[in-house]
Design a protein around this nucleic acid. Structure first.
Lengths: 150, 150
DNA sequence: TGCAATTAGTTACGGATGAAACTAATATGG
DNA sequence: CCATATTAGTTTCATCCGTAACTAATTGCA
């Protein structure tokens, strides 16, 4: 196939740009669904989301699983603690390491937000045929594996 | 097919999350390729990218084509003007409306950054087979069309 | 005409974000 | 053991970003 010209770039056909716009639009729409109602920011929701499925993680483990950096996790965790949505104690073996879990209140919110989030996801996936969904998942698997640096 | 449970959410399988992480990773990698070298932020690059392909747009038109809001465009444009990378005059028919174009210096940088950006895109696309690329483009077309609000 | 509504773009402001410096706790190796 | 290096998490700082308020120019319609 003819190679694309190297001296112009059409943003609308540029994969990174398309992904960025699409992803921002989706994240914003979902966040609009819970931010105001629950006074919950996206980073805070991500922290709650992992702890809801897998309690007693350390902040570093939360960072790993959410792809957030540790500063963002620290901030989100502290806000959630202030709001009484998280409980924290520290590991007796290593007093630096925190052990985080949703509080009862946090778990309640978690279970209220999940259907909102999944609802938006369905709204998207329902527009795709079964083979398209499979193709999308397989493409995401592949794209996530790509090494972008060296 | 069995419906997924509604009381847990696995971030790693949640489409909006996967898109967000993937898109951020790609944008960051590309930006790392030009930000330091050219002292150019992502919003500034987006403005340059559209004006490089289509000069003499107003700020509002730039906003449309980049999916940025007008404040972000205004800021980016002003930085680019300060840096001598853009030229601005105002339409004689409507003295509010700006007419923006890359300066000579701006065009030079534009042509230097393009291969960097396209290089990263190729690094990604080259990992996909021809049918996979087609599938990806078609999926993006479809996803971009989805109405997320009402 | 002329005054209210609209539009282009900027400014101001409060909150969010990431990098780097910092503190406290633990591991290491001489 | 003790000094140094490493690790967990927090704080600081400078910047970024979006919303809302604002200014200036233009349009529209009475």
């Amino acid at each position: 196939m003819m190679k694309k010209s190297d001296d112009t770039l059409h943003l609308g056909e540029f994969l990174p740009y398309r992904l960025s716009v699409l992803s921002n639009r989706i994240s914003r729409a979902i966040a609009d669904g819970y931010e105001e109602q629950f006074q919950l920011s996206l980073p805070e929701w991500r922290v709650m989301a992992v702890l809801g499925g897998e309690p007693d993680l350390s902040a570093a483990q939360v960072a790993e699983r959410t792809a957030m950096d540790k500063v963002a996790v620290s901030r989100a965790v502290n806000k959630l603690l202030d709001a009484g949505r998280l409980e924290r104690h520290f590991s007796p073996e290593d007093k630096r390491r925190s052990v985080l879990a949703l509080s009862e209140e946090g778990a309640k919110i978690y279970h209220e937000v999940i259907p909102i989030a999944l609802g938006y996801e369905s709204r998207i996936l329902d527009k795709l045929s079964e083979p398209e969904k499979l193709a999308l998942m397989s493409l995401l698997d592949k794209l996530e594996d790509i090494q972008l640096h060296t």
